[in-house]
């Protein structure tokens, strides 16, 4: 998440409409990226990212001048996403049904193919992307939030703890658990990729 200029923050706090457009254009990609990582599809990510900017606009009076705008937007994104997930009725999906879904070309794979896949990508690579998204879907809301913040958005465990208002030990526990679940879901890829380092 990029750093903002102090002037932009001041103008935002003063309620200058042009400053909001500036903020949106500055952070739209970052907020969308986090929203996509949390939701796993473009439609929900777009909806969530817009919701974040609207909430930020309405709550700018509560933004502390010494806080980081980017972190604040991240926090709004996380809270809005978790609230949205709580509001939606719980969907019970059997393990068998999930496996059946994965066996079919899903909407996600079509979306990926349409917007992200390069012409030279093999079917295997596209399949891998779908498997990874499905593995993320298998995480709970909190596990996924903690994992994507640490893994894709480079937030430290302490920062995640503050953003989500949960203990650092809980963040570590959620992170460890999410890694184990992802490992189980992607076990068939073995050591194909090699070490992170």
């Amino acid at each position: 998440m990029r750093d903002e200029s102090p002037q932009l923050v001041e103008r935002l706090r003063a309620g200058e409409p042009a400053a909001f457009r500036e903020m949106v254009e500055c952070y739209q990609r970052d907020v969308y990226a986090l929203a996509y990582d949390l939701c796993g599809n473009h439609h929900d990510a777009e909806d969530l990212s817009q919701e974040v900017f609207i909430k930020a606009f309405r709550a700018i009076g509560s933004f502390r001048a010494d806080a980081k705008l980017g972190s604040w937007l991240y926090r709004i994104t996380m809270n809005a996403h978790i609230d949205n997930k709580r509001r939606k009725p719980v969907q019970l999906v059997s393990i068998d049904a999930r496996d059946d879904d994965e066996a079919q070309p899903s909407e996600r794979s079509l979306e990926f193919a349409a917007s992200g896949a390069r012409p030279d990508q093999t079917a295997g690579a596209a399949r891998f992307q779908v498997d990874v998204e499905n593995a993320l879907d298998a995480l709970s809301t909190q596990e996924r939030a903690v994992f994507v913040l640490r893994h894709y958005h480079d937030m430290k465990i302490g920062e995640i703890s503050q953003s989500l208002s949960i203990a650092e030990g809980t963040v570590k526990s959620l992170l460890f658990r999410s890694m184990r679940k992802l490992r189980d879901r992607l076990a068939h890829y073995g050591d194909e990729v090699g070490d992170l380092a």
């Binding site: 998204e133 070490d195 992170l196």
Partner: peptide
């Protein structure tokens, strides 16, 4: 580390 490596290969489609 292997799992983290796999997850790092994930690509996010750009609209």
């Amino acid at each position: 580390r292997t799992t983290a490596g796999l997850m790092s290969r994930r690509r996010r489609p750009d609209p």
